[in-house]
Design a protein around this nucleic acid. Sequence first.
DNA 1: TCAACATATCGACCAATGTCAATATCGATA
DNA 2: TATCGATATTGACATTGGTCGATATGTTGA
Lengths: 113, 113
Amino acid sequence: MAPSTPSAIFESLGCCSPLSGNALSETDAESIAAMFAVLADPVRLRLLSLVANQADGVCACDLVTVLDRSQPTISHHLKVLANAGLLDRDKRGRWVWYTVRKDRLAPLGDLFA
Amino acid sequence: MAPSTPSAIFESLGCCSPLSGNALSETDAESIAAMFAVLADPVRLRLLSLVANQADGVCACDLVTVLDRSQPTISHHLKVLANAGLLDRDKRGRWVWYTVRKDRLAPLGDLFA
DNA sequence: TCAACATATCGACCAATGTCAATATCGATA
DNA sequence: TATCGATATTGACATTGGTCGATATGTTGA
């Protein structure tokens, strides 16, 4: 006989807790959400794309002038991106050069496959 | 002769504004950031994965019991996901069934390619 | 050593948002 | 119609986070 309520449908599949099968764990969800939170800002997205479009990296001094934000704000966003592992930071004398970590970006794309 | 300052390097490439080449526009960055903001919450990520793992969709009544959140909170998150176009909402009598919109998720993955 | 410049940090402010209790709405069924 | 159960909305609260002015740190070159 067919189950009548929604949860009964899941229970009829033979498992104890209906939906916990191959779903995201709480800790996995938190770490993935943290990565998406880093990407959930238009200024950071533009910084990331600006850096990604220059194979040899970009000087922070140029990033400050391009977007319409103050120097502390750009510095803050670059730090967030670097702390998330999406940008590599390379100090060369007085300047700081950033390059994109494609090996860190790719796994995020796999989540949508 | 090699340019001495970082910005001079970009200007030597022959373009007016150094980094604006194929980078994200402000409006594009805003809309993409909005999509990532939807995904930047662990409860929403788990809801999405729970729905995605059931080919025939999931009843909201079951989603309420699985995660450790109140019914209004789950309802709120489902609304956010549906408004973003990531979930389809289908009201069947007293219950609401959700299915995932894979065609809306896939383009987000392409951003990392 | 000093001045100028690039970058980082601090402190404060304001907007956005996740959360829940209470309540409303809507559909099914007796 | 009346009641019950599923879902949505409202209002309030606390937290988070983007932003900037002011300032600190660190590096270069005179």
